[in-house]
């Protein structure tokens, strides 16, 4: 006698609601990784989500968590306030690259440096998605956007900021890792990283940070498949994947 078992098991905290994201956008995958980590660690009922401004502003529609919407770039400050007010809660921010690495640069740097015991999920797709694909601080040199129509010029606008490297250099950071979700192998690593980030918060080790390299097929003017390939061919070479800081790994050595 054979009984059929379901292999896929979507966490309950992930609402059964179609997302507003474009075809092939990686936000949905990143949302799922967060949902899985919170569920596996049994944190769902104790977690407060701090949303940000950008395509993921509606994340509260997709994750069934107590949530607050923060002004553009200020999520780490809002999260600081929440964690100080409710130190027993799990607090995380979910931010894009325009939000975190441009208008919110001061907030993320100081939140990390203070070692606020929160987690930041940073989705880097190298453009301002929601506003129409403008140049972001993470836009690669040469990349065409609606505000760099001839391609980002290093002379005029500098080059793409590597956030995980910067964050890893700050004193209060317990864990900083860059991942991608373009292949099964990378998704599995990303799953572990997101889970670890929340585990470190549970352990009270300080600030944890996971950068997720992600596609924006619409604003890259690519098919989802071509955009997914670009992660491998252009983004990972400039934004190398891996662990940039891990306070526990250091202790083990």
């Amino acid at each position: 006698m054979t009984q059929e078992l379901r292999v896929t098991n979507y966490p309950q905290v992930l609402t059964d609601r179609p997302t507003h994201y474009c075809p092939g956008c990686h936000h949905g995958t990143a949302h799922r990784l967060v949902a899985e980590a919170l569920t596996d660690l049994g944190l769902v009922e104790n977690t407060i989500l701090v949303g940000s401004i950008g395509c993921s502003v509606f994340i509260y529609n997709y994750l069934s968590l107590d949530a607050i919407e923060s002004p553009h770039g200020r999520a780490p400050a809002v999260a600081t306030g929440i964690k100080r007010a409710r130190p027993d809660k799990i607090v995380f921010t979910y931010q894009g690259d325009g939000d975190l690495a441009s208008i919110g640069m001061a907030e993320i740097m100081h939140c990390a440096n203070r070692g606020e015991n929160i987690t930041t999920i940073f989705v880097n797709n190298t453009v301002y998605g929601m506003t129409g694909g403008q140049m972001a601080p993470t836009t690669l040199v040469g990349q065409k956007t609606t505000t760099s129509p001839s391609g980002r010029s290093q002379e005029d606008t500098g080059s793409a900021i590597r956030m995980t490297e910067i964050i890893a250099s700050l004193g209060g950071v317990a864990y900083a890792e860059r991942v991608a979700v373009n292949t099964i192998k990378n998704i599995k690593k990303a799953q572990k990283a997101v889970r670890k980030a929340f585990e470190y918060q549970v352990k009270g080790l300080g600030f944890s940070f996971v950068e997720v390299l992600a596609t924006c097929p619409t604003n890259w003017h690519m098919t989802p498949l071509a955009a997914n390939k670009r992660i491998e061919t252009e983004m990972i070479p400039y934004f190398p994947l891996g662990t940039y800081k891990d306070v526990l790994a250091k202790e083990e050595k």
Partner: peptide, 24 residues
């Protein structure tokens, strides 16, 4: 083969994969 890689990759939670127990 029931590996569910497709479901893992799908950003829109479209896919469900089922396996029969005897196969497990």
């Amino acid at each position: 083969k029931g590996c569910a890689f497709c479901a893992m990759m799908c950003p829109d939670f479209v896919i469900n994969v089922f396996k029969s127990e005897s196969e497990k």
